[in-house]
């Protein structure tokens, strides 16, 4: 018997986990649907029931950017929900360790810590990701049709001759953007990379909190996140304000990796901003940035594994 990782035991554990939590997850699914429904009703109300607003004059849409707002609304709603539900769902990871009976039942199941940890990742990260996306579209697709229908109804006579880019259901999984984030020629890919790694970081952080704290893990993890965030924020400010980094607009704006790489490749570490000798170039910052975005969630997930291994009841 392989005592570290057995795929058959892992699949048994996942099956067991889903069977034991079926009711709870169904309840969560209905909760997510209800909240998404309420959020879309609020979006419609706030936008005067015209979230897909546009005007047409002589067959020309006079405010083409407004239609893209609907895409932004969907995008922001999707990722806000993913972050919030990801955090909440991760916080109830493993088991309720404040209940020793439940913890004993869980830890005594004949499976390795690695298998128990992987089960949590499969359920909390992968299943949630797909289940949430499915639930989101169950509300988003009808909402998009409704928003367009409401708007089209007001432009029936002008719509026939008008030509404009119609915005439909947002594609949150754009493969070329998600999986090729390292290619600078793919526009906006960095945003997807940030969002995905941000999601993983949140999930990893709350999973660690779930195994670290026995009681009120959600609130304690939130507090810990606040403290870490404050330290990071103030440390970041002092780091950026120091002379160790090259000055320039990029310091205060979103780090455009493509631009940085281009500078690094063409100029090396030569300082094109006058008056300063650069110790650490933008390429370095870029590397640090990507390293942190990948390292942080991985590190936190590993921490939760080792904490689980050491857990006592």
């Amino acid at each position: 018997m392989n005592d570290t990782l057995s795929l058959s035991r892992l699949s048994l554990l996942i099956k067991n986990h889903l069977a034991e939590n079926r009711q709870r997850y169904l309840l969560y699914a209905f909760g997510i649907l209800a909240i998404a429904f309420i959020v879309y009703i609020l979006i419609f109300c706030v936008n005067n029931f015209r979230p897909y607003y546009f005007e047409i004059e002589d067959g020309v849409v006079t405010n083409p950017n407004n239609t893209t707002e609907w895409e932004v609304i969907q995008f922001v709603t999707y990722f806000s929900g993913l972050f919030i539900f990801g955090g909440i769902f991760a916080c109830i990871s493993f088991v309720n360790f404040s209940n020793s009976a439940e913890a004993i039942f869980y830890l005594n199941k004949p499976a390795s810590h690695l298998e128990k940890w992987l089960t949590e990742i499969v359920v909390r990260v992968v299943f949630l990701f797909f289940a949430y996306t499915l639930l989101f579209y169950l509300i988003d697709i009808p909402a998009t049709f409704l928003a367009r229908g409401l708007e089209y109804a007001g432009h029936l006579e002008n719509l026939r001759d008008a030509s404009f880019e119609e915005i439909g259901v947002v594609k949150v999984f754009h493969p070329s953007k998600i999986f090729y984030f390292y290619l600078p020629e793919i526009p906006d890919s960095i945003i997807y990379f940030l969002l995905i790694s941000g999601y993983l970081s949140i999930v990893a952080f709350f999973m660690y909190g779930a195994v670290l704290f026995n009681r009120f893990s959600f609130f304690k993890t939130l507090f810990l996140a606040f403290v870490v965030g404050m330290v990071y924020f103030f440390y970041g400010i002092s780091f950026v304000d120091s002379d160790i980094l090259m000055p320039g607009e990029w310091r205060y704006s979103f780090p455009d990796r493509a631009e940085m790489n281009e500078q690094m490749i063409s100029n090396g570490f030569r300082d094109e901003y006058s008056g300063f000798r650069t110790s650490l170039g933008p390429g370095f910052l870029s590397v640090v940035f990507y390293f942190l975005m990948i390292f942080v969630p991985s590190f936190l997930l590993l921490c939760s594994y080792f904490k689980l291994k050491e857990k006592e009841v």
Partner: peptide, 18 residues
């Protein structure tokens, strides 16, 4: 896991899933 599959603990305060 090899050890855990050879023992069963019935605690005084036990848990049963739904």
């Amino acid at each position: 896991p090899s050890m855990l599959s050879k023992l069963f603990l019935l605690p005084e305060e036990f848990f049963v899933p739904s």
